[in-house]
């Protein structure tokens, strides 16, 4: 496997802070699960579809944040190398960029998979269909990958922690809040609206289109990372 990706994943899955991040993520999902248990059978205040939507909305936000935050060093993990460090290494640019893309994608897949039993338990307890959980993964993984790659670029491009965090949160707000403000015809661009549609109506062709769109966003981020590495190695960082 790509050495850069291997190093990133080792830090995210094996480091003490990486383990804490996972535990918090699972704790949030578990809390949702336990709080969603009905106090009395036959008296359900939350409809099954709404409950599943709430679960998946939390997941898409959490995975997107964790992918970008770990990549941008907002959550600094011992052993994970950012672009400035890697620019000084002997790895070719293509290896670094592809490694960052692969590590972001695999981390997103990992986060989706470890939450799967909890979501299946929550949905099946209420008899809600479990298919939307799998379908939403088709959106969460490319979105998390794109967030991770753009987080990587932010981690290299912006040296100031404050500026980097601000830019990181602006990007997240644009991805979730900004797209919600678009006209109704643009609904697939908002991840929550798309998941809502998946939960209520099942598979839609928009899922593939939007997933491809986020993959393109990830590719654009990868191009920016490669460009940054080029500048950094040429000693033109900040230009």
């Amino acid at each position: 496997m790509n050495a850069v990706a291997r190093g990133d994943l080792y830090a995210r899955l094996g480091s003490a802070r990486g383990l804490r991040v996972q535990t918090v993520y699972l704790a949030v999902c578990s809390a949702f699960l336990l709080l969603s248990l009905p106090p009395e059978l036959g008296r359900l205040d939350v409809r099954d579809a709404n409950l599943l939507l709430a679960f998946l909305a939390v997941q898409v936000v959490a995975v997107t944040y964790l992918c970008s935050a770990t990549a941008s060093a907002e959550i600094a993990l011992e052993g994970e190398k950012g672009l400035p460090d890697l620019a000084l290494s002997a790895f070719p640019t293509a290896v670094i960029v592809s490694g960052k893309v692969v590590s972001s994608a695999l981390y997103a897949i990992y986060l989706v998979l470890i939450a799967m039993p909890l979501f299946v338990l929550a949905a099946a307890l209420r008899g809600a269909p479990v298919a939307p959980i799998g379908l939403s993964a088709g959106l969460v993984v490319p979105l998390g990958t794109a967030a991770g790659v753009w987080g990587t670029w932010l981690g290299g491009r912006l040296a100031s922690d404050f500026t980097r965090s601000l830019a990181h949160w602006v990007l997240l707000v644009v991805a979730f809040g900004g797209t919600a403000l678009l006209p109704a015809a643009w609904w697939p661009l908002n991840p929550i609206r798309l998941i809502d549609r998946l939960v209520r109506d099942g598979p839609t062709p928009w899922l593939a289109a939007v997933a491809a769109g986020w993959a393109a966003v990830a590719a654009a981020g990868a191009w920016l990372c490669a460009r940054y590495l080029g500048y950094a190695r040429a000693g033109e960082v900040g230009a």
């Binding site: 899955l13 990486g18 383990l19 996972q22 699960l33 336990l34």
Partner: peptide, 23 residues
């Protein structure tokens, strides 16, 4: 029972994650 199962699962994920990190 559900709380215990969930807690057990979270511990299991932590345990396996360390071993998975070596890929």
């Amino acid at each position: 029972a559900i709380g215990a199962l969930v807690a057990l699962y979270v511990v299991a994920v932590r345990w396996t994650s360390r071993r998975l990190a070596a890929l």
